[in-house]
C-alpha cells in the first residue's frame, strides 16, 4: 500500500514536470513567433520609409532637371536673339544698302538678292526657334494671351480644332505660368501625334482663392490608363513633374477609342 502510494506520487512528479515542460515550450514558440512578427513589421516599415525617401529624391531630381531645362532654354533663346538674330539683321541691312547701289552689275545684284533671301529665311527660323524655346508673348502679355496664341496656331495649321475657355490667373508666378503653358503644349502635341485627335476642348478656370483647375479633353484614340501609369513616356513624366511643382493633382481618364480627359487641379491645402 505504502509502495503503491509512492509510485503514484512519483508519477505525478513526472507528469507535473511534463505539463510544465509543455507549457514552457508553447510559451517559448509563441514568444519566438511574436518576436519574428514584430521584427518583420519593423523591417517592412523601415523598407517602406526608404522607398518613400527614394521616391521623394527622384522627384526632387526630376524637378531640378525641369528647372535647369527651362533655364537653358531661356539662355539659348536669349543667345539666339542677341548673337545671331542681331547680327543677321546687320547682314540684311548691309545687303539692302548694297542693293541700292547703282554701280553693281546684274550678276552681283542677283547674288546679293540671294544673300538677302537666305538671311531673311534664317532670321525667320531663328526667331521661330527662339519663340518655341521661350514664347516671348508669355513674358510680355501673360499666360492667357500666350495660351490663346498657342491654340490659334494649332487651329490655323489645321492639325486640330481647339475650343478653349481661359480665365486670367493673376496669382500665378512667371515660372508657374510657364509650367502650365508647357503642360498645355505637351498635351496638345501628344493628342495630335499619338492620339490622332481632331478636336480638343481646353479650359483653365479659377477654382477659389489662389486655386485653379485645368482640363483638356480630346477625341483621339485614347489609351489604357493602367498601362501608361506603369510605364509613362518622357512627355507624361514631364507633365507629372510639372503638376507636382505646381502643387496640383493630376487625374487622367481615358479608354481605347474614346479619347482622353486630363484634369489638373490645385491640391486641397486645408
Amino acid at each position: 500500500m505504502e509502495k503503491q502510494f509512492l509510485i503514484i506520487q512519483d508519477q505525478s512528479l513526472v507528469i507535473a514536470a511534463l505539463v510544465y515542460g509543455i507549457i514552457f515550450l508553447v510559451l517559448l514558440t509563441t514568444g519566438l513567433l511574436l518576436f519574428f512578427h514584430y521584427s518583420r513589421r519593423k523591417i517592412i516599415q523601415k523598407e517602406l520609409e526608404k522607398a518613400a525617401l527614394k521616391l521623394e529624391h527622384q522627384k526632387t531630381i526630376l524637378q531640378a532637371t525641369i528647372a535647369t531645362q527651362e533655364e537653358e532654354r531661356k539662355r539659348i533663346a536669349q543667345d539666339l536673339h542677341d548673337a545671331i538674330s542681331a547680327r543677321l539683321n546687320v547682314v540684311s541691312l548691309t545687303t539692302n544698302l548694297l542693293l541700292d547701289d547703282d554701280s553693281i552689275n546684274e550678276e552681283q545684284k542677283s547674288s546679293l538678292e540671294h544673300i538677302l533671301g537666305v538671311t531673311t529665311t534664317t532670321l525667320e527660323s531663328s526667331r521661330k526657334i527662339a519663340h518655341d524655346l521661350l514664347p516671348p508673348i508669355l513674358d510680355k502679355f501673360g499666360l492667357k494671351v500666350a495660351l490663346e496664341e498657342l491654340f490659334e496656331d494649332f487651329t490655323k495649321s489645321k492639325q486640330v480644332q481647339i475650343k478653349y475657355d481661359i480665365d486670367e490667373l493673376d496669382f500665378l508666378s512667371k515660372t508657374n505660368d510657364l509650367h502650365i503653358f508647357r503642360i498645355a503644349q505637351e498635351l496638345i502635341n501628344n493628342a495630335v501625334r499619338h492620339g490622332d485627335a481632331s478636336r480638343m476642348n481646353i479650359q483653365l478656370k479659377k477654382d477659389g482663392e489662389n486655386r485653379f483647375i485645368f482640363t483638356c479633353k480630346d477625341n483621339g484614340n485614347g489609351f489604357d490608363v493602367k498601362k501608361v501609369r506603369k510605364q509613362s513616356g518622357i512627355g507624361l513624366q514631364n507633365i507629372k513633374s510639372r503638376t507636382a511643382i505646381l502643387e496640383c493633382d493630376l487625374h487622367v481618364e481615358s479608354e481605347i477609342d474614346k479619347g482622353s480627359l486630363f484634369t489638373i487641379q490645385s491640391k486641397n491645402n486645408e
Partner: peptide, 20 residues
C-alpha cells in the same frame, strides 16, 4: 522577415504543435 511571407499561420501551427 523581409518578404510578404507565405503560409505564416500554418508555419506557426507547425512550430507550436510539433515543439510541444
Amino acid at each position: 522577415l523581409t518578404t510578404r511571407g507565405e503560409y505564416l499561420y500554418f508555419n506557426a501551427a507547425i512550430l507550436i504543435y510539433i515543439t510541444a
